[in-house]
Simulated scan of single mutants.
Amino acid sequence: MEKPIMLALDFADFKQVEQFLESFSNPGDLTVKIGMELFYQSGPQVVKTLKARGCKIFLDLKLFDIPHTVEKSMERIGELGVDYVTAHTLGGSEMLTAAKRGLIAGAKRVNQPVPDLLGVTILTSCSKETLANELNCKLAMADQVVSLAKLAKQSGCDGVITSALELPMLTKEVGTDFKYVVPGIRMKQDAVGDQKRVATPEIAKQTGAFAIVVGRPVTQSENPVAAYRRYRANWNLEGE
């Protein structure tokens, strides 16, 4: 079964989203990521509209608050019928457990499947220097990501968001029965931008990724469909 490429719809408003999706002959085949910029501008209606088009929805709001607030927020998200949603693992086990409980309650209320809960570990824009010198983390990057992934798994998450660089250690220490979703994906010829820990789609797949997230290299391309096909072809190379 083909693993998903999650297209990050990092646009300022839904009109730009519609213009982008019109480039594709069948946008209902896409898995799309709705992040904070678009959601805060357009609200839940953007989820409902894209879901009606047939898109699979990754709602990436990175919830991080006290357990009660996160649980009640996740109930509302569970009612939207999205496929994937995120919460920060740094919120701790109580918050993550509450997040999953809220998703289950919300989805049950509207008779929808429970979305996969993905724990955000360390952002791919975060360098090892930032981790050590600003966040005062005593662990090395890979060790910190593994520690947070273990916490996520024990707390009921279905997977984590992680860079491809930590995947070999994650699959070994956390297991292959967990979904690893990898942002920071760039082909060698594409600009890295503000990402610090990047990898190609092929490398992500070979090291155990369940899905990859691709944004600006596709959405800001002069030919988005061609760029998407290029990433999809590299993602689906055999040899993993």
Rank of each mutant, 00 (worst) to 15 (best):
G208M: 11
I77P: 00
E79P: 00
I161H: 02
A105E: 14
L38V: 01
L21D: 09
L21R: 10
P224Y: 03
K15S: 12
A211Q: 12
D83M: 06
L63C: 05
A52K: 15
S155P: 05
I34G: 09
D190V: 02
P113L: 04
A98Q: 11
L7F: 01
G81L: 10
G175K: 14
Y84D: 07
G159L: 01
Q195V: 08
V85Q: 09
L131D: 01
M95K: 02
L139N: 11
V174T: 12
K128W: 06
V218M: 11
K196N: 01
E238C: 00
K179L: 14
V110D: 08
L117Q: 12
T130D: 15
L123E: 07
G28H: 02
V214G: 07
R229Q: 15
T219Q: 06
K56V: 03
F58A: 10
G184W: 07
D177W: 03
K62V: 06
V192K: 15
I34T: 08
T219F: 03
F11K: 12
L131C: 02
S147C: 02
A52F: 01
G102F: 09
F58Q: 11
E22A: 11
T130E: 15
P4R: 11
I122S: 00
K153W: 12
A226K: 13
T69V: 12
E94I: 09
S127E: 12
A140P: 00
C126D: 01
E134A: 03
A98V: 02
Y40S: 09
L90K: 08
V218N: 07
F20V: 10
L135E: 00
K205N: 06
C157D: 13
L123R: 08
L61H: 03
P4Q: 12
H88Y: 12
W235A: 09
K15A: 10
K188F: 02
T176C: 02
G208D: 12
L117S: 04
V174W: 13
S125M: 02
K150W: 03
G35I: 11
G92R: 04
V192R: 14
T207M: 09
M74L: 11
P201V: 04
L30R: 10
D158H: 07
K179N: 14
F24P: 03
T124P: 04
C55T: 14
A204V: 03
L30E: 15
Q112V: 00
S221W: 11
